[in-house]
């Protein structure tokens, strides 16, 4: 007899109906749709920048330095060196999105692992791990970035490592706090009772119930990571100074805000839209995980 009950197919361990729920959550909500579409467009623009960009981002046209927008040749105008801003934005998205997504993901994986283990086992494990996290937190991340650059030279991976380093403690603390309350729930004891091991309990029972605030944290930190990357660029310890990034574009435009406002406004707006998009999509993601969200008790 074929069984169509309960036996959900899985995709890398995630039940497929989670994806269905996600699809429903996104399709039924124009805000989430907007979020997903904008983020996807930005990512696509970044990936296919070499094919899509109208100009070489490094090519200068001295005749039209700080040209205003609204020209058909340069829809977003040019910067102080006469480079096409649209092309620079597209190439800049590669670094900005790559760095922020990469750094926050690494920070989340490391931080959440530390936090879940610390919160679940408690006792001396908790003490040891959280003191370690305190040390990370007390260590100025700019110093870490400078150290990395001094040792390995400038590069995208160093920037990602430095920013990820700065966010480990945020995730670790949040995850630990959630786990501390979840591990007291009876369903954790019930899982122990059926013979599930510690790793199984942590991944199957505890983590899925802690995921909602972590998603919110993730989306918030994406925004901070984009700005952190620009800080590093500004200090000259980010990616190579000539590489366009949104943060760097914003920084360059800052001094020219009186003469050429669009140079700083365009990357600023792009950052806002990205953060907003990720936020809205994050909400939908959270709802998809929150099976209790619908039809609350009267």
């Amino acid at each position: 007899m074929s069984t169509d009950y309960g036996d959900a197919d899985t995709f890398f361990g995630v039940r497929l109906d989670r994806f269905e729920r996600l699809y429903e959550a996104v399709a039924g909500d124009y805000k989430a749709t907007f979020g997903l579409v904008t983020v996807t467009l930005f990512v696509l623009a970044a990936i296919f920048a070499p094919e899509l960009a109208p100009y070489d981002p490094m090519a200068q046209e001295y005749a039209i330095m700080q040209a205003p927008s609204l020209s058909s040749a340069h829809p977003l105008g040019t910067d102080s060196f006469g480079r096409d801003l649209l092309s620079r934005m597209m190439y800049g998205a590669r670094v900005s999105l790559g760095v922020s997504l990469g750094a926050v993901t690494i920070g989340a994986v490391v931080g959440v692992s530390l936090g879940v283990v610390a919160g679940y086992f408690g006792g001396w494990v908790d003490d040891a791990l959280m003191r370690f996290v305190d040390v990370l937190w007390a260590f100025p991340w700019l110093l870490v970035a400078i150290m990395l650059v001094a040792i390995f030279g400038q590069g995208v991976w160093n920037v990602i490592a430095a920013i990820a380093f700065a966010y480990i403690d945020d995730f670790a603390r949040l995850a630990r706090g959630e786990v501390l309350s979840i591990r007291e729930e009876e369903f954790v004891l019930a899982a122990k009772n059926i013979g599930l091991g510690d790793l199984g309990i942590m991944t199957e029972e505890v983590l899925p119930n802690a995921v909602a605030p972590l998603i919110v944290q993730f989306t918030v930190l994406i925004a901070r990571a984009i700005l952190a990357e620009s800080t590093l660029s500004f200090l000259g310890i980010g990616v190579k100074p000539t590489t366009p990034t949104w943060g760097a574009l914003l920084g360059q435009g800052r001094s020219l805000i009186g003469q050429a406002w669009w140079i700083s406004i365009v990357p600023g707006v792009a950052i806002v839209i990205t953060v907003l998009g990720i936020n809205l999509f994050g909400d939908a993601l959270r709802d998809a995980f929150d099976v209790r969200g619908e039809g609350g008790s009267p």
């Binding site: 009876e186 369903f187 004891l189 019930a190 899982a191 199957e204 899925p208 119930n209 995980f289 099976v291």
Partner: peptide
Amino acid sequence: QYVFQDPLSALNPR
């Protein structure tokens, strides 16, 4: 095996 008092809290909500 153990059966808990409050089945709502003893079942993983997710």
